[in-house]
Design a protein around this nucleic acid. Structure first.
Lengths: 348, 348
DNA sequence: CTGTTAGCGCCTTCAT
DNA sequence: ATGAAGGCGCTAACAG
């Protein structure tokens, strides 16, 4: 017959501490939680007993009892190794930490089926909320979670088919401005190197790109638009093909950091002086040895604001049960254009 | 008088499902868990009820009851935005995921006091284990966790003051080889740009560096050794000062990716042709427009192996209660030297 | 100031 | 095949 300690990993419980101190588990609980309604004498004894046993409170049992949530927040991303996502993760976690919330990683690896399971798992674990960068516009699993009462905040893309808070980047405006910049430099044949058409940011950035061309009275030639690249390797191939066209583009606009870095390699390998512009700033963008313009924004801030929106849903400290649920909010993060020249860096 | 549903976030419980299906909660539990001892008729009803209510099992209550652990693993790192750590995180999480384990982020931001609290919090949350890259050699908090029965695996540094599995990088060998390489190229005055002396990898890499110099009969001049840089900015300053010495080094060896990137900027700014070598490979290392040699290793693998060691402690599937606890294991990940030239990449 | 009772959601054990 | 009882660790609510 296995005793209690065997099952739970051999960790001492509150009752063990209480027995050792010669008090009830209730008193031990109060002491350890800092409840003032205790004598300094018993306080001593309980503390001593806890120390001797190496007692560590069981956060699980506590939250089960209190029904107040687990203090866990799920972070759904496609690829943590992409600096965009790791920056985002850091921003989210930094903002959550002071509130006693911890981040649980849910890395989908671009697998949509896996994303469904991960969300279900997060809900089963009773996370207090989810910050998500869903892989596609099929967000039924997130909608289900939200409908089940789990606050969801989307980062860098809007909710599809349900309502939720979100923090967006000014994809359209940033891309349009960057394209206008290329046009102002005299480029008339510009290639677009972008992510899959299922990715919201990619399509918005393409819209900004084509809008700028339209406004300048230039046609959007489909041959110069390559979408679907998820890795730098794929992007290099796509850019190489653009550069090999009969009338090659004199400039490339890339929809994210993967595509920009991939295109960089293609330009380098081709020995061209094709102008390069891309969405997303990244480390060493200033060191590539050729002029590079990026549409920059604060990824850390994107994460922090997402977390902030989530927290205000998790802990509605202001108006408790103020009747109506607050309507979903959308925050848009601004972008700026930064040009890196081999000679130095210039913000615009 | 608030009903039960109010406290727990309004989520339906097993009992709600059972009532709706007109069975006991026990039967509902069995059905939902796939226990074969049920009629297909009741199975139908219970499943239907669960669907209609949007029931999601409470993983917390389950693990509390079963005492089998939470399926959570803590990942203790200093800075998730550093590509080394995000790569590691991805490797760890990838290996854990198929075992139904999830990764909880514990990002210390280099704060040692905070690290203590984070570890205590992880233990309180009853994580099944911890993969840690502790900030310093003061690891008493980890020792306490390990003593409390939480499996701990250290990644890229060894345990100090207690026993634990760990996965190390061949810091000494890699640094020595890289330094030998510089010596073979004729460099006689080599600067060292490194992390704080409290960081294990930094000191080992310095040892490899000095060992190579010793073996070549060259003195180690303290003036050429700069330690303590944690960010690229600090590294740039340190490298700049080395380059400004009366008899400046003709080559720099950097102890990690932060220092290498920082030193790169200093060399560029100074317009020198100082040779650059650093520990850690990184994205765009091949694109810097000057020759760069890096001591490379597989960070993803480092993470995977750490997770693998942890899993074998968490689920000792082989010999159950085989008496003696297995002795701690140490795995060392090999390194290789890669030279990037503006003209191309060459592994050695 | 301290102890008793009860139960969070789930599941093991023992009936039926 | 199903149900009742009891408890994992903890803490609100109510005694005393």
């Amino acid at each position: 017959m296995p005793d209690r300690r065997a099952a739970n990993g051999g960790k001492p419980t509150l009752r063990d501490v209480a027995e050792r101190a010669g008090v009830s588990s209730m008193t031990a609980s109060r002491v350890l939680r800092g409840d003032p309604r205790t004598t300094s004498a018993t306080r001593e004894r309980v503390r001593a007993a806890a120390d001797e046993l190496g007692y560590m409170p069981n956060h699980l049992a506590r939250s089960l009892r209190l029904g107040k949530g687990t203090g866990l927040v799920g972070l759904l991303v496609t690829n943590l190794a992409n600096p965009f996502y790791s920056q985002l993760a850091l921003g989210v976690d930094s903002q959550l930490a002071p509130h006693g919330l911890k981040t649980v990683i849910a890395n989908t690896k671009q697998d949509l089926a896996g994303e469904r399971d991960l969300v279900a798992d997060l809900v089963a674990r009773r996370v207090d909320g989810i910050v998500a960068v869903p892989a596609s516009t099929d967000q039924r699993h997130l909608a289900a979670a939200a409908a089940g009462g789990v606050p969801v905040v989307l980062a860098s893309r809007p909710p599809e088919g349900f309502e939720a808070d979100c923090v967006l980047v000014d994809d359209f405006g940033g891309a349009r401005r960057a394209t206008q910049d290329l046009l102002a430099q005299g480029h008339r044949t510009i290639g677009f190197v972008g992510s899959p058409t299922t990715v919201y940011t990619g399509t918005q950035r393409l819209r900004g790109f084509t809008d700028a061309l339209d406004a300048a009275g230039l046609p959007v030639d489909e041959r110069y638009v390559r979408q679907g690249q998820k890795t730098t390797g794929e992007a290099t191939v796509a850019a190489r093909e653009l550069l090999a066209l009969p009338d090659p583009p004199t400039a490339l606009f890339c929809s994210n950091n993967r595509n920009t870095i991939g295109a960089y390699h293609a330009i380098r390998a081709a020995g061209r002086s094709t102008a390069l512009t891309g969405f997303d700033d990244f480390e060493l963008a200033d060191a590539l040895g050729l002029p590079l313009t990026v549409v920059a924004y604060d990824t850390d801030q994107l994460g922090r604001q997402s977390a902030e929106l989530l927290i205000s849903r998790i802990r509605p400290a202001d108006q408790p049960s103020s009747g109506e649920p607050r309507p979903p909010r959308t925050i848009t993060v601004p972008t700026s254009l930064i040009t890196y020249n081999p000679g130095g860096k210039h913000g615009i």
